[in-house]
């Protein structure tokens, strides 16, 4: 199914390169929600997120000839989006991690479970829990937040995330686990 989806994307790209702009519009409609879900949660300003989502597709279109069809279109699209977000943070002088820079949290807290750990996730109704997770996401280190969103909101695989960020698979997994633990601790603090 996934492979069929990839083939459809490649066919749409081929048609776009032959001058059929309508084919690119299909790609935009197909992926606009995923990109908006990612960028919206990264930049936290709706209008900026809308502008950036548009820019991702405009950039993708203008460099479509450089797309390597041996890779997935979504992976390429998320890399463009990630670079756009990093540029935005650099301009705003917000901490932006380079693709290979080790994050502090990778050397950070142990993932050991303490004795008498309180249960926070079960304390809230699902809707309230989601709202609190969204709030906690804002306080998450950028490198963890990005991977958490890709994994849980966009449904990317660890392999895809490792490819986008050019990071080892183990590092990506560890950051996602760290992100979940950080969120759990933030929920614990706020409850």
């Amino acid at each position: 199914m996934s492979s069929m989806n990839e083939e459809q994307d490649k066919e749409l790209i081929r048609r776009t390169l032959q001058g059929e702009t309508k084919a690119f519009e299909i790609l935009v409609r197909k992926y606009q929600q995923s990109i908006m879900n990612y960028i919206g949660r990264m930049v936290r300003e709706r209008e900026t997120a809308i502008d950036f989502t548009q820019d991702v597709f405009v950039r993708a279109y203008s460099s479509l000839r450089s797309f390597d069809p041996t890779h997935k279109f979504t992976t390429w699209l998320f890399r463009i989006a990630s670079n756009l977000v990093i540029d935005h943070w650099r301009k705003k002088k917000i901490q932006a991690l380079s693709l290979s820079e080790p994050a502090d949290e990778d050397r950070g807290p142990a993932l050991d479970i303490p004795d008498n750990e309180p249960s926070v996730a079960r304390k809230f109704e699902l809707a309230e829990l989601r709202r609190r997770i969204e709030k906690a996401l804002e306080r998450l280190p950028t490198s963890q937040r990005e991977l958490f969103i890709w994994r849980h909101v966009n449904g990317l695989s660890y392999e895809e995330m490792a490819e986008i960020k050019s990071l080892p698979l183990g590092t990506v997994k560890n950051r996602v686990y760290q992100a979940k633990e950080t969120i759990r601790r933030l929920l614990e603090e706020s409850s």
Partner: peptide
């Protein structure tokens, strides 16, 4: 605890996309 948290995270809602974005 973590299963519950993961399930909630997996069902975070979509952000609204302007109807004329494409």
């Amino acid at each position: 605890e973590r299963r519950h948290l993961t399930e909630a995270a997996l069902s975070l809602p979509n952000l609204e996309v302007p109807h004329d974005l494409a």
